[in-house]
Design a protein around this nucleic acid. Structure first.
Length: 271
DNA sequence: AATCGCGCCTGACGGC
DNA sequence: TGCCGTCAGGCGCGAT
């Protein structure tokens, strides 16, 4: 599910509710998510307070008194803050319970999410150390994408979804940004001009900012911390709109598969 | 080094 | 009604 706007929406919703809270208990209800959960997790966390909640790429970082808890929402994960007395539903896999009676509840039907404790230097962790720049930072510009794409033959859509190139862009926003920039998703990344990459860069920033302002996109699973969906789905221009008229030229939006992922674009507006 | 395709899971949906 | 195949917003891994 979640791309950068959804993860950041989650972070913004959660941080004011849980920062400063001391952990009293941790309940693990499944043995593994993407990877086996460390059974020492409760012992490592109990007694510690959450100092702040950060984000790097699509990972949430819960900074503790000592160490950091790394959480990835996978495709279907979501976080809620609920009273500990509220009964756990089917896919509520982990509760981080605080001394005040509330808990942070991680739910993830497909269990592609991840949760691991990192004792120190979380940004140096192998999962984070090789990630590309944040898309909303100045580090991402047309020149950067142009430079990184030289001699690359893969299609530009999987290229911008590669987290080592730029983080936070998933399948939905990749289609949207390429439409906004007028670039066909199947074109080889290495054969796109610096000028076109400048347009693509601006499109990526624009769509991510707009989606963030709308609280993210809910296609099926994504929920904000308060349980409400994200409202950006209504503003999607091409994603999920196969057969509908292009919002710009009214030609029919087509769907193709690129790197085993559904991809939407307008044959007339994108070249 | 780059690229491709698989698999991890569950659930929803369409066709028969 | 049930069974089967396909698809879903991510990502790491192994093979080539």
């Amino acid at each position: 599910m979640p791309e950068l706007p959804e993860v950041e929406t989650t972070r913004l919703g959660i941080e004011p509710l849980i920062s400063g809270c001391r952990i009293a208990r941790v309940e693990l209800r499944v043995p593994k998510l993407r990877w086996p959960l460390d059974p020492r997790l409760p012992a490592l966390l109990v007694g510690q307070s959450i100092r702040s909640v950060g984000r790097r790429a699509k990972y949430l970082l819960f900074y503790l008194d000592a160490g950091c808890l790394l959480l990835h929402l996978g495709m279907t994960g979501n976080l809620r803050v609920v009273p500990q007395s509220s009964p756990a539903a089917k896919h509520d896999h982990v509760d981080i319970c605080f001394v005040d009676g509330r808990c942070l509840r991680f739910s993830d039907p497909r269990r592609f999410g991840a949760l691991l404790f990192v004792p120190d230097q979380p940004l140096e962790h192998p999962l984070l150390s090789k990630l590309g720049p944040e898309p909303l930072s100045a580090e991402l510009d047309g020149r950067y994408l142009y430079r990184r794409s030289r001699n690359r033959t893969l299609p530009v859509k999987p290229f911008i979804m590669d987290q080592q190139i730029v983080v936070g862009v998933g399948n939905i926003y990749a289609s949207e940004a390429l439409f906004m920039a007028g670039i066909r998703p199947g074109r080889a990344a290495g054969r796109i001009s610096e000028k076109a990459y400048a347009r693509l860069t601006e499109a990526i920033k624009q769509v991510l900012r707009a989606a963030l302002a709308a609280g993210g996109t809910t296609f099926s699973d994504f929920r904000r911390v308060d349980g409400r969906p994200g409202y950006f789905k209504q503003q999607l221009l091409v994603y999920g709109r196969e057969g509908e008229p292009c919002p710009r030229c009214a030609a029919v939006i087509v769907a193709i598969r690129l790197g085993q992922r559904s991809t939407f674009y307008c044959r007339r507006c994108q070249s």
